[in-house]
Simulated scan of single mutants.
Amino acid sequence: MKALDERSRCATLEECDDGYRLTSRIPRDATLGSRMRAKELRRIIGRMIRHAKPLSLVANEHEVSAVFDGSEPEANIKRLLSDLNRRVDEFRRERLHPRVVDELLEISSRERRRWIKDGRLPISGSASFRRGKQDIHFPLHPPDRIARLAQAPDIIAEWRERDRVGTRDIDLRSSQVSG
């Protein structure tokens, strides 16, 4: 097999017996190690490749691979490769949903809400969805800052300790008031 495009950041394009094989890896720096984000990125990549009508498409936990007919113009396949790179780059910058933040930081939703409220956890916007007649709003988080927090578990441990000590102080004061 001869590599046709060495410049791609997230995929390779090679000639094979059936035509062209495009293999798109699920980059860890795009998913930040989140299983939820990896699943979403696999879905996005798979949809883009399916839209190009490959002969076959196979996805696993780490990559999506497709074979395209040899009569398909190489320029079309390279355009798909370029589009995949662009979309993965966009995905890297997408703000994070609260559940992804919970997964990445290994925190509870209660901790996340408390840390947002007191300003410890960064927010970069909000989104909403409609449930019946009610609009549900939730915060979105900057991926770069959450990734740095995920790499510093000592900060999370310190926050938890601060909350534990703070809660104990509140409990002592409330017993003194009622007592």
Rank of each mutant, 00 (worst) to 15 (best):
K2G: 12
L4Y: 06
L4V: 03
E6G: 10
E6D: 11
C10Q: 04
C10K: 01
C10N: 10
L13P: 05
L13Y: 03
E14R: 15
E15H: 05
C16E: 07
D18P: 00
Y20I: 01
R21H: 03
R21W: 02
R21T: 09
L22D: 02
T23A: 10
T23E: 11
S24K: 01
S24T: 13
R25K: 14
D29A: 10
A30V: 02
T31G: 09
L32I: 12
G33A: 15
S34W: 07
S34D: 06
R37Q: 10
K39H: 15
K39P: 09
E40R: 14
R42W: 11
R43K: 15
R43Y: 14
R43N: 11
I44Q: 04
I45S: 04
I45F: 05
M48R: 05
M48P: 08
R50A: 05
H51Y: 12
A52E: 00
P54F: 01
S56E: 04
S56A: 11
V58P: 01
A59W: 02
N60Y: 06
E61F: 11
E61Y: 11
E61N: 13
E63Y: 10
F68D: 00
D69L: 02
S71F: 10
E72Q: 15
P73R: 03
E74F: 01
E74A: 07
A75R: 06
A75F: 07
N76R: 05
K78E: 10
R79K: 15
L80N: 03
L81Y: 07
L81P: 01
L81I: 02
S82W: 09
R86Y: 09
R86W: 11
R86F: 14
D89L: 04
E90R: 08
R93E: 15
R93G: 13
R93L: 13
E94D: 15
E94V: 11
E94Q: 15
H97T: 03
V100G: 04
V101Y: 02
V101T: 07
D102H: 14
E103V: 04
E103M: 08
E103T: 05
L104R: 07
L104D: 03
L105P: 08
E106L: 08
I107R: 00
S109A: 05
E111I: 00
R112Q: 02
R113Q: 00
R113M: 01
R114P: 00
K117T: 08
G119K: 12
R120E: 00
L121Y: 01
P122S: 04
I123R: 09
S124I: 03
A127P: 14
S128Y: 13
S128A: 13
S128Q: 12
S128D: 12
F129H: 12
R130N: 12
R130C: 13
R130G: 04
G132H: 02
K133M: 14
K133F: 14
D135T: 15
I136V: 12
I136C: 05
H137D: 06
F138N: 08
P142N: 02
P142R: 06
D144H: 14
I146V: 02
I146M: 06
I146K: 04
L149C: 06
A152I: 07
P153T: 07
A157F: 05
R160T: 07
E161N: 05
D163M: 00
V165W: 01
T167W: 08
T167V: 04
R168P: 05
L172M: 11
L172D: 12
L172N: 14
S174R: 08
S175N: 06
Q176G: 13
Q176I: 12
V177A: 13
V177Q: 14
V177W: 13
S178Y: 10
